[in-house]
Design a protein around this nucleic acid. Structure first.
Length: 198
DNA sequence: CTCTCGATTAGCT
DNA sequence: GCTAATCGAGAGA
């Protein structure tokens, strides 16, 4: 029997340690209600960013600008930005106010709204529908209009459906594409979950 | 104002 | 494996 799932609340986003938060979101469900329909996916890959000491984090050195300001909000809102002028990347803001922590969602497994995702990713194999941070946003129709969105609302939210993610199925690696961050680039802050029974 | 470059992807060799 | 695509944030003058 399929339970409806528990929508995450404030305290689920409050963890001050971004690596623990990134691990926590594996197996949770990212749900998006868009104009062309509802789609959702189970989170399978994440990366941790923050706090202000992390040279790879946009909030490094407590840099506060129009773009990075949302990083300093209390956990539970969305941070979306345009990368390489082409791709949107979606982050979950975590941790306390005035400290920049975020979890980048790098991949999800589409679990609902498959027909709509198929239209959004024409000609793409299901396997690659949302395997990559830019692809996740395309598949779930996440865009700049989600910048700062409340992740506990009715448009975009996270659910816990009781999925267990065994530690043995989670691999940790350095983060992707952050070589500019020196020693911080080497930290194993990327979490990849490969379900044994996919 | 100008310049650089990025938390990537898709398509081609 | 290589790289074009594509544009705004951020930094410096």
């Amino acid at each position: 029997m399929k339970r409806p799932g528990r929508k995450l609340t404030r305290e689920d986003f409050a963890d001050p340690k971004p690596t623990r938060a990134a691990r926590f979101f594996l197996g949770k469900f990212l749900c998006v209600q868009a104009p062309d329909g509802y789609t959702e996916g189970m989170i399978t890959e994440t990366e941790a960013y923050g706090d202000h000491r992390d040279a790879a984090c946009h909030g490094f050195g407590n840099r506060r600008t129009a773009r990075t300001e949302i990083l300093f909000a209390p956990g539970g809102v969305s941070y979306v930005y345009l990368c390489y002028g082409l791709h949107h990347l979606f982050n979950i803001i975590t941790g306390p106010q005035d400290s920049p922590e975020a979890v980048l969602i790098r991949a999800v497994q589409i679990t609902g709204g498959g027909e709509i995702v198929r239209q959004r990713r024409p000609g793409v194999a299901k396997k690659h529908w949302a395997s990559g941070p830019g692809r996740v946003c395309t598949a779930l129709a996440i865009g700049m209009h989600h910048y700062g969105s409340d992740l506990m609302g009715e448009t975009i939210w996270i659910e816990d459906r009781g999925v267990k993610v065994p530690g043995r199925e989670v691999k940790r690696t350095p983060r992707i594409g952050v070589d500019y961050a020196g020693t911080w680039a080497k930290k194993p802050w990327r979490f990849v979950w490969t379900p044994s029974s996919a």
